[in-house]
Design a protein around this nucleic acid. Sequence first.
DNA 1: TATTCCAATTGGAAGTTCCGATCGAACTGA
DNA 2: TCAGTTCGATCGGAACTTCCAATTGGAATA
Lengths: 297, 297
Amino acid sequence: MEMPTNRQLECFAAVFETLNFRQAAEKCYISQPALSAQIKQFEQLLGILLFERDKRRVLPTAAAKSLFPKVEKILRDTRILAEDSHRFGEPFSGTLRLGVIPTVAPYLLPKTIRSLHREFPQVRLSICEDHTERLVESLEEGDLDVLLLALEADLGSAETIDILSDPFWLVVDSKHSLAKRQRIAFEDIAQENILLLDDGHCLRDQTLEICNRVTAKGSDDFRASSLPTLLEMVAGGLGVSLLPEMAIESECRPGRGLTPLPYGDISPFRTIGLAFRASSHRQPEYNLLADLLRREM
Amino acid sequence: MEMPTNRQLECFAAVFETLNFRQAAEKCYISQPALSAQIKQFEQLLGILLFERDKRRVLPTAAAKSLFPKVEKILRDTRILAEDSHRFGEPFSGTLRLGVIPTVAPYLLPKTIRSLHREFPQVRLSICEDHTERLVESLEEGDLDVLLLALEADLGSAETIDILSDPFWLVVDSKHSLAKRQRIAFEDIAQENILLLDDGHCLRDQTLEICNRVTAKGSDDFRASSLPTLLEMVAGGLGVSLLPEMAIESECRPGRGLTPLPYGDISPFRTIGLAFRASSHRQPEYNLLADLLRREM
DNA sequence: TATTCCAATTGGAAGTTCCGATCGAACTGA
DNA sequence: TCAGTTCGATCGGAACTTCCAATTGGAATA
């Protein structure tokens, strides 16, 4: 079944409104013969006569009268469609679906969400907290737009933007022998019982990697499902832990019995950044987002 | 403001549904490059990206997801528009606006309406009863589609279809001296007081015209606004009247004190027929209507 | 009678849409 | 690892639409 053209509908509406081919043509910014042809085409397509024309005037048929409101609605809808869609061109229009890992979310998001809403009031944020592997999966499926995570992990084919280096601190309980030291070195942890997060946390893998460098061994006896839990175990004297700097302030509040110890200049670190599909074409937006996150630090 | 074409919408919908340019192209009966071009155009028109394409797959953007339902609705509405309008092509679709003169309506319409509904159930009839002059005006304005009337009157530029010749009878009161005659002649009315309808009735003009031929004179003392009233006056002995044959049966029922007298072979008559705008293009329908009216006689 | 206005038509220019062929990248199976 | 397949993008030219300027002829106007 053949479909009428939008131009045919426009011409029809113009003629119906003016009842004058010449004026209607002007309204459509085409010549009168072109308009005549469009109307003729439209009539042939529908198999009916839309206007009775004699030499002195133009009269809409019953069919034209009944069609006109519908045609007008279609044209209006189409116009609105085009106008509405322009909004999508602006940065952060619509919903931004953000994936974040659990060892970043609590420390960066609260401030970020607030300033994002301040700078781009139109944004609607949808946040998903999960492990790197599942986030990357969702990203590739198109269920998420952008990830905020440690870039050391395997991110598949995603493109990335660096935001900041997040150095690791050593956290010991305040009664620990290392607690009085001003500064520590890699090798100091070689003899310690290093507590780890559950499988799946990239922080676990990074900690293990660092342990390997100094032939230290992570503890297999306990696995915490979150950093607060992990630090409870440290405070309880079960072992020590590596903690990203961004988490120090909120996790090692005074009186919790924890002492955070910075490494020197050669501190191990993780790189926090954004990841997104190479095909997404929204990199300008993600750069804006990265800028905003950097400013938050 | 530029408008998207229907083809762009179709292509967009097809790609959105299949997420595969090749299949979508097949669905639209065009080649894949042509489809690619349509999508590209549409994206440029809207100023946004609709699909993320990489070498292995196609992913709709948030904008595409939000646009799709609207696009689908527009396409559906457009299709329905085209389909619906085909109904207008069938004879007597929609409303047939019929004008009838008062000296025809009561005698022809009841039967006609019934059989019209029987043969063309889809017809919706709108009837307007008025004098010839106003009917012709309405016809020319496009407020009526077709008239059923006596074709002797001035019908402007309307085209006409003859339906039947409607001979005049002479009607006298049963005590009148002519009432016993089997047959009468023109000249018999020359001495009579001939009663007339109001101004505007074409039957009045026709009667006067016949009077002129025999130098009879119409009465100016009484004017009836309808045939039943006129015949009451005849029955009351105020004069005689010419009555169209189609009205005889219902107006001169036995016991009403009226005697209808037929003229011979050379009876005067009026011609009943249809009139419509030359530009209307519905002559085939009006021919059907005329056939139906002839069969009713 | 001359002028104006109208829609239709014509012929040719301008613009579009389309297709086939091809490309390069990325999977698939041998 | 290598041929075969599949994907969307691109290109050049063919086919087709759409358009305009000029004109026609009928009707209304003056």
